[in-house]
Design a protein around this nucleic acid. Structure first.
Length: 296
DNA sequence: TTAGCAATAT
DNA sequence: TATATTGCTA
């Protein structure tokens, strides 16, 4: 019903093409994380595949309520860190008028796509500026909190440290590059190419950071090798078999990639956030996932 | 106030 | 196991 106004994904041609945008210039992607409850509220039953083509609507509708095109919407930690996303009144659980901040957010699932976005943000910011808050802002994923990012960043740094320690050069995103520990976490981290300069040099931001264009090339190369098979959205082990076979075809270059061939620059692809509730051992779990919307 | 880290909890 | 939270220091 609602047409997608892609204003969210438009960028007002600030930079011409390959040029590296300033973080300030970046218009956030409209990644949205929605709760199943919200989905219900919007009469959306099949988040998984039904709206593959239309979930922009969903996305947008949801965004309208809080984040239409304001990059800062998600980054107002001082005022209301997260009350905008998961509104208590919608969730019904604790709707006693208590502000949403007291409510528990569902765990965020760091899908390869989301992680990629994270890496892109970090790469773009440079090590020096890549602090949780900034990263969060640059990622501009609705519902993503500074804590989410901080926690992830913490692990990511450990991962990088390990990578530095044992390989030093042979990384670049291949699997199994690590020898000692290749947990699922490692594979997640490996699913996105680690910008080389992360591993070189010291961590003090001496290196400015590679132009994004270069990173993009790497991404494009490496994307091809390690796409599928990463269970986006399936939180438990019970495959809820989501129909997507090809979710992240385009998501690749993420934030920094602009559609240069068009007059309209769309930053990345709209990503549709979705919840998966998963029944595991009789325990209900809800987790937040991201489903990049491939449009092919 | 935020970052970063380790430990701990879920 | 992956992520969140906490407690602490800077």
């Amino acid at each position: 019903m609602k047409e997608v106004e892609s204003s969210n994904w438009l960028i007002s041609s600030s930079s011409s093409s390959n040029e590296l945008p300033n973080p300030e210039d970046l218009i956030p992607l409209s990644q949205t994380l929605i709760t199943p409850d919200l989905a219900l509220a919007f009469n959306i039953t099949n988040l998984n595949n039904n709206n593959l083509n239309n979930n922009n609507n969903l996305n947008h509708n949801y965004l309208n309520s809080n984040n239409n095109n304001n990059p800062q919407a998600v980054s107002t930690p001082s005022s209301q860190p997260n009350s905008n996303e998961f509104d208590s009144s919608e969730l019904g659980t604790g709707d006693n008028g208590e502000p949403a901040r007291t409510l528990k957010r569902p765990r965020l699932v760091w899908t390869p796509q989301l992680h990629k976005r994270f890496v892109d943000a970090v790469a773009h910011l440079g090590i020096k500026n890549a602090v949780p808050k900034t990263i969060m802002q640059l990622m501009s994923v609705d519902g993503l909190t500074r804590e989410n990012v901080a926690s992830h960043l913490q692990k990511y740094r450990l991962y990088l440290k390990r990578m530095q320690g044992l390989s030093g050069s042979g990384n670049g995103g291949g699997y199994g590059s690590g020898s000692g520990g290749d947990s699922a976490t490692d594979r997640l981290f490996a699913s996105s190419p680690v910008p080389p300069h992360f591993l070189h040099q010291n961590y003090d931001g001496l290196m400015p950071y590679m132009p994004v264009a270069v990173l993009q090339q790497q991404h494009q190369q490496q994307q091809q090798q390690q796409q599928m098979g990463l269970g986006v959205g399936v939180v438990g082990g019970h495959g809820h078999g989501h129909g997507h076979g090809h979710f992240n075809r385009h998501f690749g270059s993420g934030i920094m990639s602009r559609e240069m061939s068009q007059g309209v620059h769309r930053v990345g692809n709209p990503v549709h956030g979705s919840y998966v509730d998963d029944l595991e051992n009789g325990k209900e779990k809800k987790a937040l996932t991201l489903f990049p919307v491939g449009d092919d």
